[in-house]
Structure formats: C-alpha cells, structure tokens
Amino acid sequence: MIEGTHEHKDETEEQIHIVSPRIYILIGATLLILTGTTAAVSFVELGPFNVVVALAIAVIKAMLVVLFFMHLRYSPRLTKLTAISGIFIFLGLISMTLADYISRAWGRW
C-alpha cells in the first residue's frame, strides 16, 4: 500500500549502514549506567512511583537496544513501520485492558 512510490528510496536506504564502534560503546555504557540506576532506585522508597520509574528506565533501555543495536534507526521505513505496529498493538492491549480495570470502580449503571 504505502509501497510503490517509496520502493526506490527503500532500496537505497537499505544499503548496509556501518555504525562506528564509538556509538556501540556509548550505548553499551548508557545501558550499564541505566541498569545501575534501576538497582539504586529500588532502594529508595517512592511509593507507587517505584514501578513507574523502573518501567520508564526499562523502556528507555529497550528503545536504545532496538534503535542502535538492532539498527532500527538506520533501517528502511517498512522495518520501522513493522516495529511501530508491534508497539501499537501492545498499547491497544494495555490501554483497553486497563480501561476495564479502571471503569469497574464506576459500578453499575
């Protein structure tokens, strides 16, 4: 559908992109620091925010891995779309499930 006109562009984009070792090391180090942060934060009492912080850090880490280590950042649009569709479906699952939990408290009509 979205293809056709972008076909040519995709092909040129597809040329393998070489990521410099510097980037890899930088990202690797960031991941380690974030892991340390997660561990450290778990000792601080934040009430319900403990989970929020832990999940937020986990999401950032996952993004870094997907974008750089898995080369999504340098990939054709179709690959990006594929990754995004996964996230979209996941959000659908979470938000509509949570909508049920939240609205149960509203009681019956």
Partner: peptide
C-alpha cells in the same frame, strides 16, 4: 480483530462500560 476480544468475557465480571465498548 484486535479490538473486540472482551466479547468472550461479557459475563466474567468486566466493567459495564467495557462490555458496551
């Protein structure tokens, strides 16, 4: 197809509002 799954759960105790949607 991804957004209709709770029709299998109407009597299971999901909220009225969810059931409606």
């Amino acid at each position: 197809g991804f957004f209709v799954w709770a029709h299998h759960m109407f009597i299971m105790g999901i909220s009225n509002y969810s059931a409606l949607v």
